[in-house]
Amino acid sequence: MTKRFAATAAFVLLSSTVTVSATDIGATFTSACPFGDCAAGISLSYLGEFVIPSGQMEHGVEFGGISGLDFDAATGHYIAISDDRSDKAPARFYELDIDVDASGLKGVSVVKHVTLKDKNGEPFAAKTVDPESIRLGKDGIYWGSEGDAKVLLPPFIRVTAPDGSFVREFPLPEGFAPTADKLTGIRDNLAFEDLAVAPSGDVFVGVEAAFYQDGPKPSLTTGSLSRIVRFDGKTGEPKAQYVHPVSPIPQAAATAAAGNDNGMSEMLALDDHRLLAVERSYAEGFGNNIKIMMMDLAGASDISATPSLTKNDQRVVPARKSQLLDLRAIGLVPDNIEAMSLGKAKDGTDVLILGSDNNFSTSQKTQFYAFKVLSRPQQ
């Protein structure tokens, strides 16, 4: 049963507060020649924002934690994964109806939620999984768990059936698993955040920031070398690895003791070598900075055989990267954007949808932005 979030007083307040300072509906943003490649040009037109306040219940389960989003052409709906670690309810993904057309973004409805199952066909026990990304593939729903480096829980990429049941798992490349000595492997809460499926069926999986063996995590003065793995979608076997250079943290926190960070929180394949990436940063006392990048893997080095980027004397060419959009620079006030999808609006308009993870916090919100895609890269 479809449940539309009511426009409660709290929602109206949140929505009107943001809209006053936001860019106008219909404003256009064009990057004509990213990295000097005019065939990679992209143009977007802003269609608006829709906010769901934290604490909203859906069939007895608190809605939130939206960390991945993808469009299902067969239904016209979107699938969205929650990063709830089976704490509030069993790990799950949602089917959403996003009401958007060329005139603007009007609402978001929950059609249903589906419980993810482990290899034994059971819901995941609390804190045994951290769902962060989701995509539709040729043989099912692909999704990723970030793992938990604190307790040496490895990340994974799995394929599930529409009912949430386990189908298969991709092998984890060497050097990715967390280690007690922190000499190699994922950093805590900086692992499998990003998942993209190319038209060829290849699957791209990215980590938020560098592994221990590949250098530091981002700081105010230095970036971080994030690995992207390219898997063969049919066999699940890794084909290549690339470097995405995550930018330095763009904003200092209010005080030296306060926290700040930056990382790649989502990827989206435009074709077999060009991807969009979200670089999401946070600074206490300031909030979130959200930048949409385009990257091109053509010509990037395959670092599959490079165990460590800090102990390497071979030439490494990272993916080319070009900033397309800075949400704060165009007048928006973004929350914790972790989800991104291309899709079709109700009238057939091509759209780009962004979604935020509210961390189930009363100081945050689930936020959706929509952009009309006026033009996109040509092969």
Rank of each mutant, 00 (worst) to 15 (best):
L190G: 03
N120Q: 14
T184S: 13
R4V: 10
G233K: 10
S322P: 05
P154W: 03
A198M: 13
Q323V: 15
M1E: 10
L69E: 09
H244F: 15
T19D: 15
T128W: 05
I157T: 11
S15H: 15
G36D: 09
T115K: 14
L153T: 04
V316K: 02
E169H: 05
T366G: 09
G259F: 14
P334K: 13
F29H: 15
I292E: 02
I249H: 00
A198G: 08
A102Y: 04
V351G: 00
T222W: 01
G140P: 03
S165V: 00
D296H: 00
M264R: 14
A254R: 11
S67Q: 05
A9F: 14
L225K: 13
N262P: 03
K182S: 11
D139M: 03
A319S: 15
R158V: 08
S363H: 12
V18C: 06
F371Y: 11
T179L: 14
V351C: 00
L96H: 05
G68M: 03
I134D: 05
D101V: 04
A161Y: 10
I52D: 00
L13G: 07
H77Q: 12
K217N: 10
K239Q: 13
A74R: 12
A257G: 06
I157S: 06
V129F: 15
E208K: 10
T28Q: 15
P334A: 11
S21R: 14
I353D: 02
R85F: 15
S45H: 01
L324K: 12
R92E: 01
P162D: 13
G233W: 05
I141M: 07
L354M: 13
D296G: 00
V100Q: 11
T2G: 08
L297I: 10
T8C: 11
D232R: 14
G355L: 09
K117N: 12
G60Y: 08
L96C: 10
S356I: 04
I98Q: 04
F63R: 00
L195A: 06
V167N: 11
N312H: 03
E193K: 02
A253V: 04
S67L: 01
F360K: 05
V243W: 05
G215K: 15
V203N: 03
T306H: 08
D148L: 00
A125H: 02
G355I: 03
A370T: 02
D326C: 11
C38N: 04
R230Y: 01
A10S: 12
Y282E: 07
T23L: 12
D130E: 09
F166N: 07
R187I: 05
P307L: 09
W143E: 01
I98A: 01
P238V: 02
D83C: 06
F368I: 06
L275W: 07
E146V: 01
N120T: 02
L325E: 03
N336T: 10
G147Q: 04
G201C: 12
E174F: 11
G104Y: 08
G48M: 08
G48C: 08
K239C: 00
P248V: 10
D181N: 14
T310Q: 13
V151H: 09
F371A: 02
F286W: 11
L354G: 01
I186K: 12
G215E: 05
